[in-house]
Design a protein around this nucleic acid. Structure first.
Lengths: 237, 237
DNA sequence: ACAAAAGTGTTGGAGATACACCCATGA
DNA sequence: TCATGGGTGTATCTCCAACACTTTTGT
């Protein structure tokens, strides 16, 4: 009967944020100088860490995200488990692992979660022991630690699927938003253009998008009607 | 920095099979007499086991399925990880765990895979050390070990999603099948009825469903045209 | 008055749905 | 000849895509 004496399980969180400038992902840097890629750049990675023995996976994802970035109260959804036996064995990752893990050679399986926030409402802060937390434009993400580029790609796919099927956009926008902002969000995430009038027709069918008695201010053109999401009418699964 | 000294990781396989009688799932029984539910019935479970230290998750799923049921060459797809800290702590599961595991109290996280086969082409056999392997009608599944009822429910949902979006039906039917059989399969899995003529119109659009120069034989009515899937034209992801 | 984005309806085509009868076979 | 499931076409409707001009504000 097969057995395994010990392996480690972690969660990695892919937190997406959006502003008028595009879709971003939250990456962290480690403090350790030694952790750099081939060209001497500090190595970035997704916020993630080993789970504790007595916590659930979802719980772990929330805790890890909070500990590393101070972000909490975010809708997190599991999308895939990554378990290649060599996923933490790459040379570039060794020295950092040796610095922070008691058993750096241990195999680690990780479960990926993704989440959505509005860049307007959240201001992530690095944990005391972390080097830095940054929003990186999806298009500008370089080589990441471990297999985090793969995980990120999986998360983007999951995000697109979710947005199309469940219209999970509300977390990505500020509490008040215009329909143009909403449309830009869809266009950015799904990487395609929509017709303005048709897009608005579809939005009007969504009962969870409600118009406010309020208009945009201080813009140099006709001010747009503001909308918000009604969280009551959204099913999260 | 959080750490965990040891926990276990397993894979569980939800293998679906189909015949004219309906959709089935492959369950195994343990040999141990002691493993029975409250009413004295032998406890069934999904084929699953701990992963080995040097194998990938997908690889593990294929191995475990083969070792426990002799089934191999099946399309397996990961759908969810289950990590509730108490998922193997239920009283009903204790005695069996004590019998087969060196560390029965260890927390176990499991990754679920589902697969599809035609009941006509596969004949699962219990592993030497297992008690039995049975196809159970989806509607007749009783209480299973651990959280396997939850995992099964997750797998059914994943199967439905896949069938709708990727038309992954080919593995569930025999190599040669009639359009009525295909329609019954869709109706069973998706739990809704289709109009015969409209259904056939849609099938004709699928280039991977090809008519054969062959008809049904020995039936007491007009013999149906036989079709088969052209595996070349199918993308598995 | 001009620039800049907001806002608004109609039409045509494609695709989905609804529906009923004849056909080939074995008993 | 009868019972059984196999096989076929058309009319309608709904949904989606395409498309252009007027409005409101700030400068």
């Amino acid at each position: 009967m097969p057995t395994n004496e010990s392996l480690h399980l972690s969660v990695d969180c892919v937190l997406f944020g959006y502003d008028d400038d595009g879709l971003k992902v939250l990456l962290i840097n480690q403090k350790e100088d030694s952790y750099r890629d081939g060209s001497g750049q500090p190595m970035s990675q997704l916020p993630g860490d080993l789970i504790l023995l007595d916590e659930g996976l979802h719980e772990a994802a929330e805790r890890v995200l909070y500990e590393l970035t101070q972000v909490q109260g975010v809708y997190l959804k599991q999308f895939h488990a990554y378990g290649d036996p060599n996923r933490v064995k790459d040379h570039k990752d060794r020295s950092w692992l040796r610095a922070v893990r008691t058993k750096p050679d241990q195999r680690v399986i990780t479960v990926g979660y993704f989440g959505l926030v509005s860049l307007h409402d959240y201001d992530p802060q690095p944990a005391s022991f972390a080097g830095g937390v940054n929003w990186i434009d999806i298009g500008d993400v370089g080589p990441l630690a471990f297999d985090h580029n793969t995980i990120l790609a999986g998360a983007i796919e999951a995000l697109q699927t979710q947005l199309e099927s469940h219209h999970i956009s509300f977390e990505l926008l500020p509490k008040k938003f215009t329909l143009s902002q909403l449309q830009q969000l869809y266009e950015t995430v799904l990487e395609k253009k929509f017709d303005k009038r048709n897009f608005r027709k579809n939005i009007k069918k969504m009962s969870h998008v409600v118009p406010l008695d309020e208009k945009q201010q201080g813009v140099t053109h006709k001010p747009a009607q503001l909308f918000s999401f009604n969280p009551d009418q959204i099913e999260h699964d």
